[in-house]
Amino acid sequence: MSNSGVVQYDNIFHNLEQNAGRLRFTKGGLGWKPTADSSGAAGSSSQTHTLEAERFRSFQWYKAARGYQLRINIDSESETEPPRDCFDGFKKEDYERVADMVRDLYDATLEAVETSTRGWNWGKAEIEDSDVRFYVKDKLAFEVPVAHIANSNIAGKTEVSMEFVHPESQQPATNTGATSGSGNKSGKKIRGDQLVEMRLHVPGTVDKSGGDDDDA
């Protein structure tokens, strides 16, 4: 371990932001700083972020789309603040180093959480913390933050639909040129595809008193 008490990781993403950056930990907390944007796009959407260690509650390790994720569950200070800070872009081999750091700096453990990659579309949906989580055989397949659900409908007796808001469509800074003409503005920043709606079949409430759709 480093003697300076600073542990640093490069090329790490903060939450769903598009810019990678440098993540540093000290006993006092963490700091994340986006890597200088060489493409010169106006008004980088990523900002320096800090969090004091007193607010760290627990540490988890997930496989995410962008490498591995260090998830720090925190006590949110308001209803709108997400109850966690997520950092993506770790390598599988980083696990030991991160676990050591979490132990040495914060006297805590890093819990590795196994996610489902079975490829099934059935399982259990649960509302936990501030997420709708979908489990396949008791393993987390995906989650959607309740705060991002703009609209939810019960369509029919067994169907629930959810529409999602996109943070970028609410930020004037990035809702201008960047969103629309993403083609030639800055070839560097790649915008991911966006989930806009999801429908679930939830049996629950309806009991099968007499197979009612027997018309096949």
């Binding site: 169907e159 993403s182 806009v196 709606e197 999801m198 679930l200 049996p203």
Partner: peptide
């Protein structure tokens, strides 16, 4: 598909959008 499990929740659809 295991329709035998009456308690399972199914993802019925997902819609994505892209400007590409």
């Amino acid at each position: 598909t295991p329709f035998e499990d009456p308690d399972a929740t199914f993802v019925r659809s997902m819609t994505f959008r892209s400007s590409d």
